[in-house]
Design a protein around this nucleic acid. Structure first.
Lengths: 239, 239
DNA sequence: TCGACTTTGTGCAGGAGTTCACAAGCCGTT
DNA sequence: AACGGCTTGTGAACTCCTGCACAAAGTCGA
């Protein structure tokens, strides 16, 4: 067991800040949302924000927001609220965004193209470091300032570019193979857009985004609404 | 206040099938995954499948799968398993996929383009019925067999095409306006790709997909792994 | 300095979801 | 017909998450 001190992102100032080691999964997902809301507020020149205001901006209730933030320590001032700048920095640090991570994108089809050109990554601390595709006719194609490389170069590039996250946007059939290559190259975090279940070693995290699944969930609720007897009336505003 | 009565998909045949009215949210999300796994199995000519096999194919454990399926009734045979065809049909029915739903896609930028061309929608019961954009220079552009229309036509088209789900792929700034137009036109289910919190009446469902958030969650775990002492060793296979 | 006011941080109760473990039930064989 | 072997469906315990309600702690004005 090594001692857990990490260079970068200096060791926690005081003992209580160690709490972020045990942030609940559900909270982590929301921290990213809070971060976006904070960025918006900062752009508007807002310096201080209460849990109520921030919660509204993020689409949650204030109790949940405060409990979430309490997992990373005590960065608010009672009677006042949170300082936008400080909170932004703190969340960024907990999410590991202070070190800008390199991302490799595999599969330059329709979706891959869109992801490569998506500005939201760069603006939030992620650098797309390399693009890969299995189709030789696509190799060399310039996209968003990068050239598409062949998947056979994946291992080498991942190492030289210090890629820490892999994004799979290939057809389902190719996903597991690509995944294996990423893992072999040392990538331990994968975002999978392919409609396939990936098999990975236990130390690798996989998150899945399936666009059709999202629609199907909506379809379910749509159907439930339609058949539940249209008890109209409840039109209260939702955060 | 349009009345949303829809014929088709009549009320459940027998009493016990009424269970699907109360399917837990978490289960609904997984049903879509099971459905995909079942489709794959069917393509392989497999007729019968046990909860264990299906669970593995879907990436969950079998107890969860059985509990999930129990929410829609009893469609398995003890000692044998589930019939792929029957289960597929049943899940499709519960998810409301038997009536092919029309989808309107708003915002034909990078991502919108990709979504319009994504084959996974059509193959799973969704028909992209209309494309919209606010940019007049983009209106008329043909994509995937459709012509892009101006958002000002949204209300009319949504009604004539009987759109039941709206997909927002605009920049954050335009999202709320587009959302309002969709809601005004009678859409009660929205899939939002814009990094913005939408405000909607209580009878409207919104699901959000934020690509940067997914990366940030991975980043968190990556950081946790990095600072937790590289206690290598646990490489057991994961479903 | 004091008191009124505001907002955070959290203990606690309730709810939702997960996992275990096993009775109930079906099939093929003897 | 009875039995042994499988697999489903589910009660029950447990973990995780949510939301309430309030004490703790800070600010501001007098």
């Amino acid at each position: 067991m090594t001692d857990q001190r990490d260079p970068e992102s200096g060791p926690a100032r005081d003992p209580k800040a160690d709490r972020w080691r045990t942030v609940p999964e559900a909270t982590v997902a929301r921290l990213a949302v809070y971060l976006r809301a904070l960025t918006t507020l900062a752009d508007q020149g807002i310096v201080t924000v209460s849990s109520d205001e921030l919660a509204t901006a993020a689409g949650v209730n204030s109790a949940k927001l405060r409990k979430d933030l309490s997992h990373l320590g005590s960065y608010g001032t009672r009677g006042v609220g949170y300082e936008v700048g400080i909170l932004t920095e703190e969340i960024s640090r907990v999410l590991g965004l202070t070190q800008h991570r390199a991302v490799a994108l595999v599969g330059i089809g329709n979706l891959g193209h869109a992801l490569a050109g998506y500005g939201g990554f760069a603006s939030r601390g992620f650098r797309i470091a390399a693009l890969f595709d299995a189709d030789p006719t696509r190799v060399g194609e310039p996209i968003a300032g990068l050239r598409v490389r062949h998947v056979s170069d994946l291992g080498e590039v991942v190492r030289t570019e210090a890629v820490s996250i892999g994004v799979i946007a290939t057809p389902a059939g190719a996903a597991q193979d690509v995944c294996d290559r990423l893992v072999a190259a040392g990538v331990t975090s994968i975002l999978n857009f392919a409609p396939a279940v990936l098999s990975v070693p236990g130390n690798v995290d996989v998150r899945k985004v399936d666009l059709a699944v999202e629609l199907q969930i909506l379809s379910f609720h749509e159907q439930r609404k339609a058949s539940a007897g249209g008890s109209a009336g409840n039109l209260e505003e939702v955060g």
